[in-house]
Design a binder for these strands. Structure first.
Length: 853
RNA sequence: GGGCGCGUAGCUCAGUGGGAGAGCGCUCGCCUCACACGCGAGAGGUCGCUGGUUCGAACCCAGCCGCGCCCACCA
């Protein structure tokens, strides 16, 4: 070690993450450690495709958590020597990105429509080039060991090829088709959206009851609606086929108030006779249920609300041009005038809203592209049933399967400009449709000009291909052979259907294998007050701020430690614990590195304490490794912390300090060995501080990021050493507690003698007792240690202490005696449990007798 | 309307059949030559409620009370 570095190590008593993290990250990049060559097979290699963040996005706590988990496993496997790829990339995020750029244009006083499609898309690309890499830089701050040399984007050239290939193949198979169908129309983004992008919220509306007169009769059928404006598009009235009240009316007609249209009265199972009067107005053009009823009965489909959310000409002169809400009021007013409004009452029900724009969904019939899912779903169900894709925690397996078994066609077209434009061309004169991977020149039939489909694909259509499209599919690339299928996926449960399910389906269909072997569904980190973290609520906690304040290692450790299968609140204390651990690592390492004697290759345990430490170390390595492998990050973090802090620092380092200061070779070797292993074990969770300390370690030959991960060494487990040192530690604790109780001054050394076997040397030293003293009656006994009278002890407290302990013991004896006196317990409990209870009783009785002398 | 989950120390959370745990906070004592972002010692819990199963229940079963999430086309 150079004098300069030695001096720095000596002087720096507090670990400062800021400067260290930037420097080390640059070193890792320079080393090229995160970029693998596409060699070997996927079975030997290790790969993960990052869930691509939106280009519009900034790193939020979910990314930070998910990134910490992925990096822990990725780094562990890289250290194990596996050829490891963690694929980096971003998602073009159709609606979100288009919205951001549209907002920007609005500030400039222009708009999307003013620019025109081509110029608009160009502006989005410019925006992407300028701002789209922000989140990538933020992943670097976290220390994520992604392959930054090869960044993918769901709209890059190769990716477009993959999307077109998939679309064409699905079309050729007959899965993709175009249809006039009811979709969730989002008036906010002016596009259809999928069922999964709709959120239902409870809304208080008014339920109106309206009389529909029966043609040629005095009777009326009273129907109920929360959306009176939709009556303008009614084309039938339906009753339940078993409803005797209305049975005679089926086949007759009603007259639609305000409009005068004749509405057939039909019978349909869907109608609930218990609701209202049992008569349902049927609006196939603006309600999904009614749409289905309409298709069953061949009803006319009238649309009175347009894509802009306003009434069109079909609504009639009185209402055309009004917004749907205005039209509703106007309809109610008109009905009041005519006397057709029978009742109105407050009504709370759930209403669909667009998750994207927040607008109330307008169910509309429109011409859209759909993908049939049944055939794709079948094998994706099987692989999960057979655990070829394992879902953890296991309750999500059923959620996945339930959803997949009920899967419905997917509306894949979106009326946006930013995205994969659907690779379909129309020839208007001869009405031909071409689906092609590359733009066709002219119509094959008439030679006429072709017009490309205006719509783009749902963003999730392209993200569904992520694990293989990023590896170069549809080309047969070395990357695909080396890294597909990927090893695992960690994800939030909210995109289990939106994304995970679809990747499994496309992976099997197009890449010939499942996209990953394991899916780990992680917890959601909530705000400190238990609310959802959200930008709009202002409850978000910025991971970058946490990194600035405490360091990336602290945040990573904190997130892993607070993670769970349950949702948890963000815990500042856990992040602080991480920061404290980094500082403790630094300082314990200073103690070791600045005091060790000659460099030794292997540990040479001398005393039982050394064997104890090495045994505990190996137990910890085995356990932490197993926890990481089963995605139990919280316990992995907690166990590593507990071993290091308590066993290594609080006990072992204190025990061996005299030997260390004397420059003993054996203890130096043991300490350097333990330090190397614990640094490597912790590196996947806290890469920066461990790498920094490693740079001072005499055994260092390269970066810790590519240092071998410790394999648990069972040969160093030593039950005898653990038991012997464990007892000595326990005795030390009891002696310390005793002296605290009698208020012995902290610095004083108390006289005592030992009956029986002399305890290990460190017991007296750490508890501040001088054993081997003669004379006088003991004032107290703590195990084999008889404490002698000293001037500095409060005699009254001693007596009190003795009596308190006796009281405890009497209670324990009573409890054990009671239990053993219970014949049923002795008969039916397992023998070892009974034996254990007998041993305890004997121990308590012995101690009680000792204290009663 | 279905499904999943939660209720354990002041706070945030572990703990799935044999004597209640961690971190933070709190109390007391220590600037002990790695670290005061530290060291040592403590206090603090009818494990939501009620029944049941068991020799034995925080843990298994049933019901109830609170809270959360997901799915669902009831006007």
């Amino acid at each position: 070690m150079s004098d300069e570095r030695l001096q720095k190590l000596e002087e720096t008593t507090r670990y400062e993450p800021g400067e260290v993290e930037r420097r080390l990250f640059a070193e890792w990049i320079e080393g090229g450690y995160f970029h693998p060559e596409p060699e070997g097979t996927a079975a030997e290699n290790y790969s993960v495709a990052i869930p691509p963040p939106n280009v519009t996005g900034a790193l939020h706590m979910g990314h930070a958590l998910n990134g910490s988990m992925q990096d822990a496993l990725v780094r562990m496997n890289r250290m194990r020597g596996r050829n490891t790829l963690w694929t980096l990339g971003t998602d073009h995020a159709g609606i979100a990105t288009q919205a951001v750029v549209e907002k920007m244009l609005a500030r400039e006083g222009t708009s999307r429509t003013e620019l025109g499609r081509e110029a608009f898309v160009e502006r989005v690309w410019e925006w992407k080039e300028e701002y789209g890499s922000r989140i990538v830089e933020q992943y670097k701050r976290l220390g994520a060991s992604l392959d930054y040399e090869n960044e993918r984007f769901t709209l890059d050239e190769g990716y477009v090829k993959a999307v077109h290939r998939v679309f064409k193949q699905l079309y050729d198979k007959g899965y993709i088709y175009r249809d006039n169908y009811m979709v969730n129309w989002d008036p906010g983004s002016h596009s259809a959206i999928s069922d999964l992008e709709v959120v239902n919220r409870e809304v208080e509306d008014t339920l109106y009851s309206i009389d529909y007169p029966v043609e040629g009769s005095d009777r009326v059928l009273t129907v109920a609606t929360v959306r009176p404006e939709t009556m303008l598009a009614d084309t039938a009235v339906a009753v339940n086929p078993d409803d005797e009240r209305h049975a005679d009316l089926v086949g007759q007609h009603c007259i639609l108030p305000l409009v005068g249209r004749r509405l057939p009265i039909i019978a349909d199972e869907h109608v609930d006779p218990e609701f209202g009067t049992g008569a349902l107005k049927v609006t196939p053009g603006h309600d999904l249920n009614d749409f289905e009823i309409g298709r069953r009965h061949g009803l006319e489909e009238i649309g009175v609300i347009g894509p802009d959310g306003r009434m069109n000409e079909a609504a009639g002169e009185r209402f055309a041009g009004l917004s749907a809400a205005e039209a509703g009021e106007a309809v109610v007013a008109a009905l009041r005038d005519e006397g057709g409004l029978r009742a109105e009452e407050p009504y709370t029900h759930s209403v669909p809203f667009s998750e994207r724009s927040g607008a109330r969904i307008e169910p509309l019939i429109s011409l859209q592209w759909f993908c049939r899912m049944d055939e794709l779903a079948a094998p994706a169900i099987e692989v999960v049933e057979r655990d070829e894709v394992r879902i953890t925690p296991p309750q999500w397996k059923r959620v996945y399967l339930d959803w997949m078994r009920e899967i419905r066609p997917w509306c894949v077209s979106r009326q946006l400009w930013w995205g994969h434009r659907i690779p379909v061309w129309y020839c208007d004169p001869c009405e031909e449709t071409y689906v092609a991977e590359q733009t066709p020149e002219r119509c094959g039939a008439c030679g006429g000009e072709l017009r490309q489909e205006e719509d783009v694909l749902d963003t999730w259509f392209s993200s569904a291909l992520w694990p293989f499209a990023t590896l170069g599919w549809p080309e047969d690339t070395a990357e695909l052979r080396a890294f597909y299928p990927t090893s695992f996926l960690t994800t939030a449960r909210e995109i289990l259907f939106l994304w995970v399910a679809r990747m499994i389906m496309t992976g099997i269909e197009f890449a010939g294998d499942v996209p990953f072997r394991d899916v780990y569904v992680h917890s959601v980190i909530q705000a400190r007050d238990g609310r959802r973290m959200s930008k709009s609520l202002g409850t978000g906690i910025d991971p970058l701020e946490e990194i600035d304040k405490h360091g990336a290692d602290a945040l990573r450790f904190g997130l892993l430690a607070m993670s769970s299968t349950q949702d948890v609140r963000f815990s500042d204390a856990k992040v602080q614990q991480g920061a404290d651990l980094a500082n403790k690592l630094w300082n314990a390492s200073r103690l070791i590195l600045l005091n060790v004697a000659a460099v030794e290759a292997a540990p040479r345990p001398r005393g039982v304490e050394d064997r104890w430490l090495l045994s505990r170390l190996e137990a910890t390595i085995a356990s932490v490794t197993a926890k990481l492998e089963e995605y139990d990050f919280a316990h992995a973090a907690a166990e590593a912390y507990a071993f290091f802090w308590s066993e290594l620092c609080d006990w072992y380092l204190e025990i061996v300090k005299p030997r260390l200061y004397e420059g003993e070779a054996e203890v130096s070797a043991t300490l350097l060995y333990a330090l190397e292993r614990i640094l490597a074990l912790l590196h996947p969770m806290m890469p920066f501080v461990t790498e920094e300390i490693w740079s001072y370690h005499p055994a260092r030959r390269g970066h810790l990021a590519v240092h071998p991960f410790p394999e648990p060494d069972g040969s160093r487990r030593d039950a005898e050493a653990e038991a012997e040192v464990g007892e000595a530690i326990e005795l030390t604790r009891r002696l310390r507690a005793w002296r605290d109780l009698v208020e012995a001054p902290a610095a004083s050394v108390l006289p005592a003698r030992v009956e029986g076997i002399e305890p290990r040397e460190f017991v007296g030293r750490l508890a501040r007792f001088e054993f081997g003293q003669d004379g006088g009656d003991p004032v107290a006994a703590v195990g084999p240690v008889k404490i002698l009278a000293g001037a500095e002890i409060d005699a009254g407290a001693v007596a009190g202490r003795l009596e308190a302990r006796r009281e405890e013991l009497r209670a324990e004896v009573k409890r054990a005696e009671g239990k053993l006196g219970n014949e049923k317990f002795v008969d039916r409990a397992p023998p070892e449990v009974v034996a254990e209870e007998r041993q305890k009783l004997e121990r308590y009785r012995a101690e009680l007798e000792e204290l009663s002398e």
